[in-house]
């Protein structure tokens, strides 16, 4: 029996969409979208949106900053890119997109994962220089959030374009390599305590986990360097590897021992394993 992490994950993804739509149905416990929201009286803000707004306008509202820090610390605990795997509606959309595209295989490697960091840097530089919050203007996440809450459908062209590009040429290129928010969370995720662990003794080497992983690069150290946990920030904690592994060789948790260097074949530092 393997685990069934996909179930809660789909539930959270769907729940996010429902939450975004809840004001339309007349509920008042939630308002806003993923850029900034109020849930049961608690103000939450996307740290990158906050960063852009503050840099771009020079206006700083303490509660706004607090909301951003709250979200940052939350994602720090659960592993930053868990946002991508569990919350982000664009991630949800592209995942669904894959299901309908037989050509696309998971984990297509089009651009290096690191591209996102440069885009993030470029966004912040642009914001500082021009005052135009570049990512908030183009963000498919915001667009989808507003499409759900306000039925503003025209901008959905952007996520549609992403789906098209991914479906035809570059699988998963947006989430893996381009999204600056993903890159931002990847930086936090590196240090986050919640990680996927690897129990080498159970592994039969069937390769299913790599096949199912949207970012197979993060599993490579387990093979190549004999690491016993996934350290790379790019891991979205989607836990698909846990679900697929017939031997339960992977698990998720807060406490994994530090890298037992003795078992690594080559002994290269783990940090370099991430691309």
């Amino acid at each position: 029996m393997t685990s069934r992490w996909w179930l809660p994950r789909r539930a959270v993804q769907t729940g996010t969409i429902l939450l975004l739509a809840s004001p339309v149905a007349g509920f008042t416990f939630f308002s806003g979208n993923l850029a900034s929201a109020e849930l049961a009286g608690v103000r939450l803000s996307d740290p990158l949106a906050c960063l852009q707004a503050v840099i771009g306008s020079g206006v700083l509202i303490p509660s706004f900053l607090f909301g951003a820090l709250l979200v940052t610390s939350g994602y720090f605990v659960f592993g930053g890119r868990s946002f991508c795997g569990w919350v982000c509606p664009v991630g949800f959309l592209t995942e669904l997109g894959e299901k309908f595209s037989s050509k696309v295989r998971r984990g297509g490697r089009f651009l290096p994962l690191a591209t996102g960091r440069y885009i993030l840097a470029a966004v912040l530089v642009t914001v500082a220089a021009t005052g135009v919050p570049l990512f908030e203007v183009l963000s498919p996440i915001g667009i989808m959030g507003r499409a759900i809450a306000f039925a503003s459908l025209v901008p959905l062209l952007v996520p549609a374009a992403i789906l098209l590009v991914e479906g035809v040429a570059a699988p998963r290129v947006w989430c893996r390599s381009l999204c600056p928010l993903g890159a931002f969370y990847a930086i936090i995720a590196r240090f986050s305590p919640l990680k996927v662990g690897f129990h080498r003794e159970r592994c039969t080497g069937c390769g299913d986990c790599v096949a199912v992983c949207p970012v197979p690069e993060v599993l490579e150290p387990l093979w190549d360097q004999g690491a016993c946990r996934v350290c790379a920030g790019e891991c979205t904690r989607c836990l698909a590897c846990l679900d697929i592994c017939p031997e339960r060789a992977l698990s998720v948790g807060f406490r994994f021992k530090k890298e037992p260097h003795s078992v690594t074949d080559v002994g290269r530092p783990i940090e370099k394993s991430a691309p």
Partner: peptide, 16 residues
Amino acid sequence: RRFLAACVRCGKCAQA
């Protein structure tokens, strides 16, 4: 100009 930067496009004002 500052408004375009400061607004995070969350739509809360519209919902309010």
